[in-house]
Simulated scan of single mutants.
Amino acid sequence: MASSAAPEPLTNITDGTSGHATGPTAHFIFIEPKPEGKKQAPLIEAWNRAISLYFTNTENPPFTVLEGTLQKLDAAVLECDCMVSPANSFGIMDGGYDDVLSNAFRGPANDYWALTNQAQEYIKREWNGYLPPGSCVIVPLPTELAGPNNPWKARFIAMLPTMRVPESMAWHRDIVYHCMWSLQVAIKNWNRNHPEGRPIERVLMTGLATGYGEIPAEKCAGQMVLAVHHFRQPVQERLRWAAIVPRENEIVDTINLDVNNGYC
């Protein structure tokens, strides 16, 4: 099981030899509500299985896994620098977990569209109004949204579309892996490009594309955790297929991950 204790400070991951350091890595807080009539949410179990698989020999895996909702879990436990919106490409935050975020960040004016409007400003500026699935943009929260009415202390929203418009993504082999990788790149680049500010260290998020997207829990969890595992590995000076094939095989394995039989 993933620990619920406070994470260690950010560290640089490197092998000290031929690889380049990946830079500071974030700690991810995964939350998922408990469905009625079920002992435990399948995604909760799947996350913990994936963490046990890919971080077997890691003393402090960079994950906290919690069962519950944004509004019902202790805000102090969920304190973070950034929340993730598993958005659509146009930043319209009115469905699923995006709806939860829009209600949480209405601001003093009680404006349901305040968060959507802020996100869309950055999507327009950085991506010409369309953020392709699998891409990510970091959106700073304005003072009126990140102020005292924000018990989670979040300062940013990461727009991370898993789909162009709300629809099933079950056909896509590895959209969750792409998204999780892009999220980490966006965080790394933000921290590097804004050395004067406090870095993004704690990231709060739910499952990616498991609602409208219909991605199975095991596939989602495996790709979310595996992308973090791969991102923490040193970037080699010169990549060749011999180094790429094992990683590719691990990604392909998550596509057919089965809860009862392991890797197919």
Results as ranks from 00 to 15, higher is better:
156 F>D: 08
219 K>T: 01
176 V>F: 03
144 E>R: 08
72 K>L: 13
92 I>Q: 10
53 L>H: 13
128 N>P: 08
100 V>L: 04
95 G>L: 07
114 A>D: 12
46 A>T: 00
34 K>H: 12
151 P>I: 00
74 D>C: 06
82 C>W: 01
208 L>S: 10
51 I>M: 04
230 H>F: 15
37 G>D: 09
197 G>P: 07
225 V>F: 09
233 Q>R: 11
112 Y>E: 09
138 I>F: 02
224 M>V: 12
142 P>D: 01
182 S>E: 11
140 P>R: 00
177 Y>N: 11
215 I>C: 12
251 I>P: 06
9 P>L: 09
90 F>H: 10
98 D>L: 02
257 L>D: 00
46 A>M: 02
257 L>E: 02
2 A>K: 01
22 T>V: 12
55 F>L: 09
73 L>I: 07
69 T>Y: 02
216 P>Y: 03
66 L>P: 03
127 W>Y: 15
36 E>G: 10
222 G>C: 15
65 V>I: 03
88 N>Q: 08
256 N>L: 14
195 P>G: 01
210 T>G: 10
23 G>P: 06
123 I>H: 11
178 H>G: 04
4 S>I: 13
78 L>Q: 06
90 F>L: 11
222 G>S: 14
47 W>C: 08
37 G>A: 05
206 T>F: 03
223 Q>W: 15
111 D>Q: 10
101 L>K: 01
219 K>F: 00
20 H>A: 10
87 A>K: 05
243 A>K: 10
26 A>F: 01
62 P>E: 00
248 E>G: 14
132 P>G: 05
243 A>W: 13
129 G>H: 07
11 T>S: 13
